[in-house]
């Protein structure tokens, strides 16, 4: 009895699903009796910039170390590009670049030697090595510092060199633990621009930082971690909505009559209006009324506006609301 033949061209082959860039399930990391990470789960698709926020000792660096294959003892599961960090550590290292939260120096090397050292460590083919190093030096704007001793570089330069190092083998996933820590404002802005360029190149970036404003400008999603637990994750707007955070809009009018104040408080979506010395601070439920609609409503209420200033959504407020200030 012959098997029924099927024409492969007529079969609808479903495209093989692309694994997530980072997938963590119920991750638990313990140091002796102390449990630093208590069951974290994260899914980060390719191309995403995921910000990891949390107070000191919350478990961020432990999570990074697991993904960087530097934490052999943990429970749960951690995959990088579908590769298990426990069973396929070598393959994970090929697709991942890790910048730790400190930058140690090989004081005896120049920047160029430093990159050649790591190019050899990443086992880059000899034919590609020089070109790749030139490219990463150019990308990180370090070409003019190639012959400077690593020891003599500023902290900002060292961080850029660290980024250049992890770009040598063109990894798909970048794990950046506090890359802006200790940098001056200029170096921080330069680092942010560099990370934006990497985002444009399609790299998946998991980044931790204490500078919340910076993450809000860079990340597509964030996760807030405290005492080893993820207390919130999603896009910034999702989190604000979830927390029912009200946006504050500062308004100054030419005709601040009492009845106008009463009428404003009755506009649907306005939470409260606080009278300050020279202005009113209107707290707005953005899910009920947009900022533009409020402006329109104020005009309709015959308010003669001399100032209408929405306050930027404050990640620090979200952070403070979500976390209890407890550290390990």
């Amino acid at each position: 009895m012959s098997m029924p033949m099927t024409d492969p061209t007529t079969m609808a082959i479903p495209p093989k699903p692309k694994p997530l860039a980072i997938c963590i399930r119920d991750l638990r990391v313990s140091y002796g009796k102390f449990e630093a990470v208590k069951g974290i789960s994260l899914d980060i698709p390719h191309g995403e910039v995921f910000g990891f926020i949390g107070p000191n000792g919350a478990g961020k660096s432990s999570t990074f170390r697991v993904l960087a294959t530097l934490q052999p003892k943990f429970r749960g599961m951690a995959l990088v590009c579908g590769l298990d960090v426990l069973s396929q550590p070598q393959q994970v290292r090929d697709v991942m670049g890790f910048v730790p939260d400190f930058f140690g120096v090989y004081e005896d090397l120049t920047a160029l030697e430093y990159l050649h050292f790591f190019a050899a460590a990443y086992k880059l083919p000899m034919s590609k090595r020089k070109g790749t190093i030139d490219d990463v030096l150019a990308l990180t704007d370090m070409t003019h510092k190639a012959d400077s001793p690593v020891d003599s570089l500023s902290r900002g330069m060292k961080q850029r060199l660290a980024l250049a190092r992890v770009l040598l083998h063109d990894p798909k996933v970048l794990l950046l633990d506090e890359p802006s820590s200790g940098l001056d404002p200029r170096a921080r802005i330069e680092m942010r621009e560099l990370l934006k360029a990497l985002r444009e190149m399609g790299k998946t970036i998991l980044i931790s930082s204490h500078i919340l404003q910076e993450l809000s400008q860079l990340c597509t999603r964030i996760g807030i971690i405290e005492l080893g637990h993820i207390v919130a994750q999603g896009s910034l707007n999702d989190i604000y909505r979830k927390l029912q955070l009200m946006r504050v809009i500062h308004v100054r009018v030419e005709n601040p009559a009492d009845d106008l104040l009463d009428r404003l408080q009755k506009i649907p979506g306005v939470g409260s209006v606080e009278t300050q010395v020279d202005r009113w601070a209107i707290k707005l439920h953005e899910d009920l009324m947009s900022v533009a609609d409020l402006h329109q409503a104020l005009v309709e209420e015959k308010a003669r506006l001399t100032m209408f200033q929405p306050e930027a959504m404050d990640m620090e407020t979200a952070f403070m609301k979500l976390t209890e200030g407890k550290t390990a």
Binding site: A68, L70, Q90, R93, G97, V105, Y106, F118, Y122, R165
Partner: peptide
Amino acid sequence: RETLDALLSTPL
């Protein structure tokens, strides 16, 4: 010198 983690995260 805090260079070990960088070295250990390479394929060596």
